[in-house]
Each structure stands twice: as C-alpha cells, then as structure tokens.
Design a protein around this nucleic acid. Sequence first.
RNA 1: GCCACUUUAGCUCAGCGGUAGAGCGAUGCUUUCGUAAAGCAUAGGUCCAGGGUUCAAAUCCCUGAAGUGGCUCCA
Length: 714
Amino acid sequence: MPVITLPDGKQLSFDGPVTGRDVAMKIGPRLAKDALGVKVNGEVKDLGAPIAADAKVSIITYKQRDGGVDADGLLMLRHSAAHIMAEAILRVVPGAQLVYGPPLATGFYYDIRFPDSRPLKEGDFAAIEEAMKAIVAEDRAFTRHEQAKADCLARLKSEGNKYKVDNAERAIAADGSAPLTFYATGEPGKNFEDLCRGPHVPSTGRVGAIKVMSLASSYWHGDENSDRLTRVYGTAFASQAELDEFLKQKEEAGKRDHRVIGEKLRLFHIDKDVGQGLILWTPAGSIVRKELQNFIGGELRKQGYTEVFTPHIGSLELYKTSGHFPYYKDSQFAPIIERNALEELSKSGCSCAEMMNRVEGVSARLAAGINERTGAQTITPDRVKPDDQLIEGFMLKPMNCPHHAKIFASSPHSYRDMPARLAEFGTVYRWEQSGELNGLTRVRGFTQDDAHLFCTEDQIPGEIQGCLSLVKVIFATLGMKDYRVRVGLRDPDSNKYTGTKENWDKAEAACLAAAASLGVPFSQEPGEAAFYGPKIDFVVKDVIGRDWQLGTVQVDYNMAIRFDLSYTGPDNKPHRPVVIHRAPFGSMERFCGVLIEHFAGAFPTWLNPEQVRVLPISEKTNEYAAKVEAALKAAGVRVTTDYGNDRIQGKIKVAAEQKIPYLLIVGPRDAESGAVSLRIRGQEKDAGSMPLDAFVAAISAEIGERRAELTVKV
RNA sequence: GCCACUUUAGCUCAGCGGUAGAGCGAUGCUUUCGUAAAGCAUAGGUCCAGGGUUCAAAUCCCUGAAGUGGCUCCA
C-alpha cells in the first residue's frame, strides 16, 4: 500500500503497486496527458515504471508551471529523439552499428560505426529527417523490457555489434545487480530496439520537432587509438516553434562570433601564406590589445612587479633543464638545429631517427645535476649521451618561465627582497593540432601577459591573493561576470607529481583559501593540477558555448629545483624559492577573442579603436568638422571625420555598423554656436546638442577612468 | 591528426559541363543635404592549388592546402 508524497506535501495512498501514470491520473487527467516521466525519490523514471513502496513523487512535464522548460523532461525527450534518429539512420544505412547516444544540453548525439564503403554524408540528412518525421507521426510507444544478462549478451553477440556488447559488459561491471534493459520504439520484436537504461518519454509522438544538425568523427571510448566512429548530432524540442527559435538564436550567436566581427571591424587577420594559427594584428585590433596591455601594466606597477624582456627562442639545453623538451615535444614546434651540425650529420649519413635521438640526448653533467637536485632519476640513463654526440639547437619558446628563471638566477637574492615579480608580455609558440585551431581562441603563436613570482614558502598565500585580485580588477573593469573558477588539485591516485606531500598540502590549501575569498563559486577538480603544482583557472564560454581558459595562477615547486634557484635566508643559508606562474588574461589573443564576443564588437570607449567620428552635414561644414577633430585629437581622443559626400543618414548608418561609441554631427547650426550634435551608440535617436568643450571634457573623463559604459550626457 | 562540409570580386553569396554574376564596399561624377544608405558611371576575378576526364571544366574525378563543426590534445 504505497503512500505517495507529492512535492506540495500532499499524500496519496494506493491499494497496490502504482505507476507514475496512475499517480498523474489521480491528480488530474490533464496532467496525465502532459506527463513525460516521473521522478521517484529524486530519480527520473519512465512514466510507466512501477512504484512499489512509499516514495516522494513528482510528475515530469515538458513545461514547468512558470512556463519554463523542465530540464529532466527535455533530457528525456532528447534521449528519446536519439533513438528515433538511430532507427531512421539504420533505415537509410542498413549496415551501420549503433554505439552510444546520450542527450546533451543543446540536443543529443549518436556515435555510430558506418561501413567504410558507406560513410554517412550530409546529403543523407534529408532522408533521415523524413524517416524521423514518419516515426514521430506513428506515435509508437517506447516499451521497456528487461532481459537476463546472459540472454542479453548472447543476443547482442548474435547481432554482431561489439560496441553494444561492450556497453552491456560495462553496465554489468558497474552494477551487477541491476537488470539489463532494452527499449523498443513500439512493439518488442517488431519495431526498432536498442539496449538502453532509459528512461524515455511515453511515445515517439511526444517528440514534436527533431533535426539532424551535424556530423563529426569521434573515437570509441574517447581513445584516439581505438575505432573511429561517426558522431551524428541532432536536436529536438516538443514543438517546431521552439526548434525554430533555437535555430534563430544559434544564427544570432553566430553573428557575434569574434571571427565574424573581427572580419567586419578589421580587428585581426589570419593569412595562410603566413601560417595556420598565426595572428596578424591589424591597426584597429592592435589598439584594443595595446589598451589592454597599458591597463594591466598600470595594475602591475601598483603591485610591485618589475618588467623584463626576453627573446622568442632559447637553446635546447635550457628546455632540457626545465623539462619541457622533449617531454612536450608533440606540442612544440620542431627544434631549430644549427646549420653546421645539420651539414655534418648529413655528410655522415645520419638517419633522421638517430638525429632525433641525439637531439633529445642530455649531457652527463646536466643529468647528474638535475637528478641530484630532484632526488630522483628524473633524467634516465638512456637519455644521457657523450658530449661529442649531442646536437646543439634552439627552440621557439613554448613558455616564458625558463628565461625568467635565468633572470632570477643572474643576481643574488636575499629573503629581504623577496618576492621577485618578473613580468613580461611574452610571446610563445605551440604546435597545436591543425583541427584544434580556432580564430583567436586557439592559435600557434600567442602572447601571454605572463609573470613569475619567486617567493618564499610563507609568501605563497599572499602572492596568490595578489594574483587573484588582479584578475578580479580586470574582470570588473570589463564588466565580465560570466566566468567560472576551477581549482586544479592533484589526483590522489597518481604519482606523476613532483614535490613533497607537505608542500602540496600547503599549496592546495592556499589555492582553495584564495579561491574561496573571491566570492564566486568555484569547483575543485582533482587530477587537474599541473605536474609541478596546483592551479586556479578562470574559464569563460564563447558564443557557441565552448569553454576557454583565460587567466591562470599556478604554484610550482619544480622549476626552482631544476634551475637550482636560491635565495639567502635570515640564517645566512641558501633556500629554495617557490615559483608562482600567473597570467590574468591568459593569452592576449584568446582574451581579445572572448572580449570581442563579450561586447559583440561594441567596446567601451577606452578600448574602441575609433572613439569618435565627426560627421559633417555637408561640405559646407567641413572646415568646422576639422576644427572639432583637431580639438579631440589634442585631447588624445581617437577620432576621424567622414568627409564623404553621402547624406547624413548614410554616414550614420556606416558609423553605427562600425560600432563607434560617439558620433558628432556638425552642421551650420553647430558651427555657429561652437557646439556638436551628439549621437550615442546603442541609442536610436539624436541625443541633442552640447558645447564642444563640454564633450571633450566628458569623453576624456570616461576614457581616463576606463568606464565600461558610455557616460557622456548632453 | 581524425570525420563531414566549405573555398567564385575587398566582404556576403548566386551560378553546378558551353567560356564570369548580384548586393554591399572601392573609385569618379552629379547632389550640398540635420540623424540607420540620394542618383549615375567605372574599375575590380589564376572561380584555393596541382593533376586528370572531356571538343569544352568554376562546374565531374583524384591529390594537396586552408577554413568551419565536433573528437582527441592543451606544460
């Protein structure tokens, strides 16, 4: 006799086992009709699932009472849509093997292995969608049935789908007591069936609108050495109107994409003749970047940083010392080998493999030093080569830290002058896979607003706090509120980390305390630490919904040991410093990309490449327009004048599309009174007229204070 | 790197076996204008590159490059 407790506390009792459908029916037939599923003690289930014991139950409908869409209901609907798509795809490509098809926040996908002779192409979408529509129109019930494990495995094996066999085996391994279930889209034995845990909506007709979105390749189990699968993305809603709205929003977001705006506003250029993933900053984009650099430069001076400059390359030996080479060689540009060495190797008939072996070799002296300092066999004997076999060379720098370590080491340090804070807008180069490159957000050459803080153990918490306050100032000034904070901690089960347990505990505690003091939610992610220390990352989403890491603060116990850095303590003995790596923007390229999307190209005045445009009504006021322009230039404002012979409407339209904050319309009336007619970006109407002097003063204040909003008023 | 798609004028795109098109932009002329595009004219192309099929290729086939969406990776 289960007693069902509803969300409002009301209790219903039944004579025997009931289903969600029975509960809904008892509340009201309308609810029973709208119900997609049921939540029993917090667990989402099929509407028809039996409820045997007392439970807290809520009925899942698509629409919530407040008019919003229920997240659980939407996921159920999309999971069901994935089954419908799978059935449709199997009709179009009979030999395909289904692998795994989960719902997502924006839709769903199904990983499928297609026969090599019959890959899925976008040209197949129309046929798939037609088949999906037919399945939805048939309004077949999703029917769950359990099968004994042995029978299930035998059945899947006889179907010859090793992926589903694997799914079943994994499900058994994860929970040996739970039954394996199939869902038939209709009648078992007659209609399409898929091994699936569920839950599903009652019938295919409840999926109102469904669309195949795109194709991608994926790897089985996410392992690039395993089978390559085709991932088919789709999305589904309860109604066509919602699908249309979703597609429209997607299109609108696309217009805010930094690559689109960057092209339109001529902020940057990527040229395949220069190279993939290499950014050319145009004059307009350079202004944005330079203003950001000036801004952070001022903050750094306030925090007692000192600026350094270092070259774009360094010797291979430097990176063998730091450990970057060859450990990370797959994501670095290939080494630059000296010409003499290359010629000699070529003459001696040295093979490429042998050459790489010798390039990666380490001298006995270097190996002994590092092994002694790290107290482990950090450099294994097989990498040690006789000096006369070593090949010298250089690398484009993948990190700035080795150079900065050498600057620190170049002079003696006392505990009295710690910490040393060395800052540099340092450009680094990394060999990103070609498929990963993406506008400004993933590139092969980028400039970090980098700094390394060489500090004592005691100074770590304070220095981390200082770094975070820097990030906070930046985000606040730019009005960026939509970011999340991730604290990367060590994986307790791994031994890949360097440094002692005590130091790690202290550093992790310092990071967590600092993150907590930020006043924004943060996640702790074990296993996400760098091998040399914990870190705090700032992550934002782009218009397409992808995560990008911007600012980062990392504690490093490793570098000072490898470079044998020290300072003299109060005991007059040498001590190891700890290094904090930090880059509040992360990379200037990525940050600017995210910033373009954040502002949709409409930058605050201090950042906008062109701050004011003067628009003479006709040639008759060209002379006055020139005077206005000169007055603004004298005040340091970035201003141009549109002397074209367009009508004023045309000039306004063009300037508005270029997102210029302030337009000054000047005609005979303004010239007479020494005034300007103001038009403010984002406002549909003329803001009125004001004296030129007043405008110059107002905009200068706005720029000087780096205000996020347009504040000039008539 | 993997899979699919894309690549035509500065930009956005049409053309899809018969020899290059539009809109915007640029330039020139007319207009001298008061708040989101006045009119006319002109210039502008190795149709991504290289091979092939064909009487004929921007168009069909092959190879490569770059871009896009995902996968994997990201010190």
